[in-house]
Write a protein that binds this DNA or RNA. Structure first.
Lengths: 142, 142
DNA sequence: CTCTTGATGCAACTGCGTTGCATTTGCGGC
DNA sequence: GCCGCAAATGCAACGCAGTTGCATCAAGAG
């Protein structure tokens, strides 16, 4: 299901409305091949002629994060749509291309198990984790 | 070899001098059981009666990072001494307390192996990774 | 002790993100 | 289409982390 549709539905369900700026933001996030930070989103929107305040971008991104439709990429404030069926609080495994910024999610049973082990070994009460691999995607390798 | 000694030697080698504040900072970092951010270091020093400006802490931490004697813990600005023979660019596993922000590093063989597996499975050319567990530390649990 | 220059303290500044509040606008009801 | 209410927005002010410029202090070599 398309991100913008899903997001619109979720926002409406909680009593939200669709504004010009919000729609543009959702579409931008959906179209963007890589995670963007609020400031970058704002810049892109302005560039596209959408008159919107940076504050609104922050607020919208915050709302979408809270709804579990976006999640932050580790080590930055950039966000991207959660993958289908992804549980936002727990699933944060992505490979991010250091050249073009495109991201792909992955899952690994061995990794889950190893993380479970670490979880049990530490004295912290673990609530979640963030994992990101960095490298070059196929097209950027050439 | 003790961190403070190593640091003093490295600083002198590059024409640096030992001041009261700097010595106290090195000793604090050495003694601290967990990574501390510049602001925390500053606060601790003041608490211990060392009159030093926050700016100086920042500058000293920056110098030590540049000398490769400290490294940052992932997801925070907290620093800790590099372990003997450690390559600072690669150590990126930490548990971060979501309440107080304190961080502790960890290593897990199983995790390393699982990551190696993922590395080989993906079509990206992996150059590194970031991993961070989030949770509550012992003292924040109460 | 004197002198050089590295280190420091202070204040101003930058950048990111947040908050308060008045205004605008989506949209449900008529 | 029009009205009215609450959501969303824009603007300005603010808070916090970290940086920079510059005058002053002091480590340590001679």
């Amino acid at each position: 299901m398309k991100f913008s549709r899903k997001a619109e539905a979720a926002l409406r369900r909680r009593g939200g409305r669709m504004t010009r700026a919000r729609r543009a933001l959702l579409e931008l996030i959906e179209k963007s091949p890589r995670p963007l930070a609020p400031r970058q989103l704002h810049r892109e929107l302005r560039r596209a002629g959408v008159r919107v305040d940076l504050v609104s971008v922050y607020r919208n991104v915050a709302a979408l994060l809270e709804l579990g439709l976006l999640h932050r990429v580790l080590g930055s404030t950039a966000v991207r749509p959660c993958a289908e069926g992804e549980r936002p609080a727990r699933c944060h495994h992505a490979v991010v291309c250091t050249a073009c910024g495109s991201a792909r999610e992955f899952h690994s049973l061995a990794l889950e198990r190893a993380l479970g082990e670490v979880r049990r070994a530490t004295r912290y009460r673990i609530s979640g984790h963030l994992l990101e691999l960095r490298g070059l995607c196929e097209s950027c390798r050439s």
